[in-house]
Design a protein around this nucleic acid. Structure first.
Lengths: 190, 190
DNA sequence: CTACCTTTAGAACGTTTATTCTTTAAAAGA
DNA sequence: TCTTTTAAAGAATAAACGTTCTAAAGGTAG
């Protein structure tokens, strides 16, 4: 029996997220990826085959372990409370770092169909999540029945991407929370 | 007297914007920059010294010739009409392309202080522009006096960045306009 | 303890990249 | 027209990069 490998893929994915967030895809060189993860070069290519495939797998991991749990707040069917919980979780996860998926869309989106389609699916899922919450909130009477649910959902989806950018540049978390409150107030009943 | 150079720097800056938008900074290689601009290699390095300096100059040009004219709408002091004009101009300029400054912030912002500070100044200027318009609109009676101007301005600033991202992924311009209308409606009187 | 197989570490390789250098030719003044 | 000066084109260079290869070490089963 051979020896077992020392590295843990999930741990490495987490480290990879940090590296790609800090330096972008092209700015993250193999030398640093090897140095900062528990990887050895051969293990890396045995496991992933290429840097590009490694990015895809990292993005998949990021989607499942970071974005999906945050989106799940929207799929709890608790109306406005779900939306508020979503934004709180989102701001905590993104502050000072930004969103890896959005960063890869801006860096590689024009050239890479795989990433473009990951970005589109993510936006669609957000949009549907917001629609579900808003309709639920209308039934609960916490949101005006007069609003155009799809338009507000579109607006919220857009807003989330703005947060991803501002998270990189904002000085404090507070300004992000203030913007969220300003966003939700007008749709609430009284 | 020597011959004169055939290239026009402003034309080249415009071409550079396209290239950096399509392929990001690291993805745009000198080979393509030389091929798609009217440059020759020697002229490039005589004029700019390095690819990095070329990016800085391109960003400065982009800021002055693309972003500032759009922001100027906010500095016309026509209240809500200025904000609407701003968003229309912004959507037209960004649709299908995204914003070069925002892209460079996501790609290089963590490593490059020059770009980070360009991004911060841009956000500050947007924020101030929105505040001015909203206060003007309140005086004109087109916006409720009850709103928190700074919070709404923060929200609008955030929204603009979301547009920059969605412009890369959105299928149609229309959804961006819909989101804008949903955004402005609640602050208007009646 | 030994033999085997795999991981590890890092040297090596071939590309690609930004930058510099060289050659050719064009424009302008004498 | 001839000389001078500099632009244009692209070959050359050196560094950086992604990927592959090599040798040594380490764990496991017999």
């Amino acid at each position: 029996m051979p020896r077992k490998s020392l590295y843990d893929v999930d741990t490495i994915m987490g480290q990879a997220i940090d590296i790609f967030l800090e330096h972008s895809y092209h700015g993250a060189v193999m030398e640093e990826i090897i140095a900062r993860t528990e990887f050895n070069r051969r293990g890396f290519y045995l496991e992933f085959g290429s840097k590009q495939q490694f990015l895809y797998d990292t993005l998949k991991f990021y989607h499942e372990h970071t974005l999906v749990p945050i989106i799940h707040h929207l799929e709890n069917h608790h109306g406005i409370a779900s939306i508020e919980a979503f934004f709180n979780a989102y701001i905590s996860a993104m502050f000072g770092r930004g969103c890896l998926l959005i960063n890869m869309v801006t860096e590689l989106g024009h050239d890479d169909d795989t990433i473009q389609s990951m970005g589109r699916h993510y936006l669609d899922r957000l949009q549907l999540g917001f629609i579900g919450c808003l309709e639920q909130a209308q039934r609960q009477g916490t949101v005006k029945t007069s609003i155009n649910v799809e338009a507000i959902a579109l607006q919220l989806t857009c807003f989330v991407q703005g947060f991803a950018i501002n998270s990189i540049l904002a000085e404090t978390k507070e300004e992000l929370h203030i913007a969220t409150r300003a966003l939700l107030n007008p749709v609430l009943t009284q």
